[in-house]
Amino acid sequence: MTATATGPLLEVRDLHMTFGGIRAVQGISFQVAEGETLGLIGPNGAGKTTVFNMIMAELKPTSGEIWFKGENITRVPTYERVKRGIARTYQVPQPFAEMSVGANIRVGMAPDDIWKLVSEGADHAAEADIGRSVGFSGEQIDMLPSELAMGDLRRLEMARNVAVSPRLLLLDEVFAGLTLREIGQISELLVEKKRKDGLTYIIVSHDLRALAPLVDRVIVMSFGEVIAEGTFDDVVRDEAVRDAYLGQ
């Protein structure tokens, strides 16, 4: 398909999500180009996580379409979307709690093929490589998630995502609960991964100061709708955006 070369990497068209009576997302449309970093911001409950859940097929949109690399993936299940190159982190990290960091990465690296899962052993060296690439020390590889600080848990989610070799990474509140130092490290990591692997990011963050240097463009959501779009500097000066944040 020629559209792949020129069109956007991801496009969502008029997404709606209604939970019972709550209209969490009411007609969101946007595009992300390959290699771009898009910021997705908005006050609490604006619908950001819900948009991520729909892009990952963890929620089925009430209506609307999702296109990836020129293909309509609206009906494609989560694991197939991952294989096509979309991955996410969770606002509240979701590690496999009873498994070491290494084993968590192992699940990410494991092929979706029962025969291969049984017949081929784990590649511990590759696991350690991925662990190191997100900044884990050698001994941390054997630690349990319960022994890790928040910054390391966010790293672990990154590692599990790196293991599935995504093209598009959805990062939900990657800076929440981190110290300034950890924020710096995660930011560096994101920049580094992007430089090396040409990843595309959509970053949700309440920490606008941490977000600003990373993003090419920002979309602002409020009550399930897009209320502003543009460069970071443009949107923070926007009247509607200021109102939305102040009204919080």
Binding site: M56, E58, P77, T78, Y79, V82, K83, A87, R88, Y90, Q94, P95, F96, A97, E98, M99, V107, G108, A110, D112, R160, A163, V164
Partner: peptide, 16 residues
């Protein structure tokens, strides 16, 4: 085992 711990996260690491 990962399914027991967090089925959704298993899906989002690309497993059926």
């Amino acid at each position: 085992s990962a399914i027991r711990m967090n089925e959704e996260a298993v899906r989002s690491t690309g497993h059926n």
